[in-house]
């Protein structure tokens, strides 16, 4: 039998470190490979659920994946994603939102009515906002503040919706909702996220459908009436 190596010798230490690292590396690689299909599927299902929640659909019962396939149609505009959904016979547009909260990223999906102006529903997610404060943006209480608000002013210009502390007023022409008390930075993050993300779709959102389809609150400019409807722009 070979001479026993002392556990304190340099050779043993280096060999030990190498072996441990190789074992751990192989283990992690195997675990990651084996679980990756399930993780990808979970991630996809999670995204689908978030979009369904933005469309005010119940995802706690039934089969969300089937419901998603049934009502949502995924489209791309250049490198941008767009989800077109059909809820109760009406067309809704769902746009992804991306921004920065206090501790990390925040994201969401906003569902607009066919007029591309009225907010039908909205959903938020976050990486790790403070529980009880910033994390409350995912609650129904906060989300429902957006319902029915308009992202464009009377002239049809894209203005987003301001998320402001109670008592503060948005600029004229812009609609506002109350920020979550105590979560100033996260609320500002939501405000900026809405503005920035909606601006990415400015061209798509400016292309309004004909006036007769609009809801009462929406004001269609003459320009829009003259121009033909063209949903699939570019």
């Amino acid at each position: 039998m070979a001479k026993q190596l002392s556990t304190e010798s340099n050779l043993y230490t280096i060999l030990y470190a190498t072996v441990i690292v190789v074992i751990v590396a192989v283990l992690l690689a195997v675990v990651s490979q084996v679980l990756s299909p399930r993780q990808t599927a979970n991630k996809r299902l999670d995204t689908q659920k978030q979009i369904l929640v933005a469309l005010n659909q119940d995802v706690t019962t039934g089969n969300p994946a089937a419901l998603y396939d049934q009502i949502v149609e995924e489209q791309t505009m250049g490198d941008k994603q767009l989800f077109v959904a059909h809820v109760d016979g009406a067309t809704k547009y769902v746009l992804p939102l991306k921004g920065q909260g206090l501790w990390g990223g925040i994201w969401g999906y906003i569902a607009l009515d066919e007029d591309k102006n009225t907010i039908f529903g909205i959903n938020f997610g976050h990486e790790g906002e403070t529980p009880g404060l910033g994390a409350e943006i995912v609650t129904e209480n906060f989300r429902s503040r957006f319902f029915g608000k308009h992202i464009c002013d009377a002239e049809g210009n894209l203005r987003s919706v301001a998320v402001l502390k109670v008592g503060k007023n948005a600029e004229p022409g812009q609609e506002q909702i109350d920020a979550w008390a105590g979560a100033t930075i996260t609320s500002t993050g939501v405000n900026d996220m809405l503005l920035n993300s909606l601006n990415l779709y400015a061209e798509f959102l400016a292309d309004k459908p004909a006036a007769e389809q609009d809801s009462l609150q929406t004001v269609a400019t003459t320009e829009e009436i003259v121009e033909p409807v063209n949903v699939e722009e570019k």
Partner: peptide, 11 residues
Amino acid sequence: IVSEILKAFAY
């Protein structure tokens, strides 16, 4: 490993 397993089975 625990985090990977959670992501696969308890997302």
